[in-house]
Amino acid sequence: MGWSLGSNDSANIFGTGVGAKIIRYRTAIILISVFVILGALLEGEKCFATLGELSKLDSRLAFFTALAAAIVVFFFTFLGIPVSTSQAVVGAILGASLYSGAVDFSKLYKIVICWVLTPIGGAFTSFFLYHLMGKLTDRFLKNPIMRDTFIRWGLISAGCFGAYALGANNVANVTGVYVGSGVLSSFNGALIGGLSIAFGVLTYSRKVMETVGKKIVALDGYAAFIAELSAAVVVQIFTQVGVPVSTSQAIVGAVAGVGLVKGIRAVSLRSLAEIGVGWISTPVSGGAICYILLILFL
């Protein structure tokens, strides 16, 4: 699960920078790995609690929950459908809880609200940051060389921040069920989760990063910087709330926010529809597969 998450979601962080040849692929994956592990170790435990509250799972249920979520992520990725690991894991936990009869839907509303707010928050943040930082940039960075350097370093810094936010927020998707069931301590869960995400980043992220990079690089450098920064800010905010969210949906929302400023269609209706469908199909698939696995093997 961690490997899959790392190989897919790293594209959201440095896809723009690598596509624009601002940062080398090798440097990008090293930076992402370092900051993902840092984020997981320093703030990862904040999201463990929310997944733990959702249901109390024993070690066997935790294993099948993680397996079901991994199958959903793999299957959706294989079909080329964007998938959120957070939604797959939450769905799988609910499936396991239904099986064990210990489901607590009262905790679910907070998670669902955060999922809906992720792309919306990304859009609002990038919309306002674009205006605010745009005024400052135009006022103080008139020399094209200084402006260019600022945007380059801005993209790299936002990427590092994004990697930190990914580690802090999404590590719970990888090892949260094991921490919740008591198989792993919070620290070990964060460490193993962070390392497995980093392993995915280091070994299998080039193709996705280059593909996403070419899509997002259509934005100018400043817009890409704002989109990356906004997505990272939003994901980090939800880490403080303790809810794992989708970094992909945060970046899609942020790109849409920049598009709104420029009056262009920077995001297709299809992308927005995919997010909406994903809110339902991913957790339902995760829950169904987990439930079926438990019936078959337990």
């Binding site: 624009a20 040849k21 601002i22 094209p144 260019d148 945007i151 380059r152 690089v217 100018d220 450098g221």
Partner: peptide
């Protein structure tokens, strides 16, 4: 060879 952002 990489001077300035691609769009510029």
């Amino acid at each position: 060879r990489g001077a300035f952002l691609p769009i510029f």
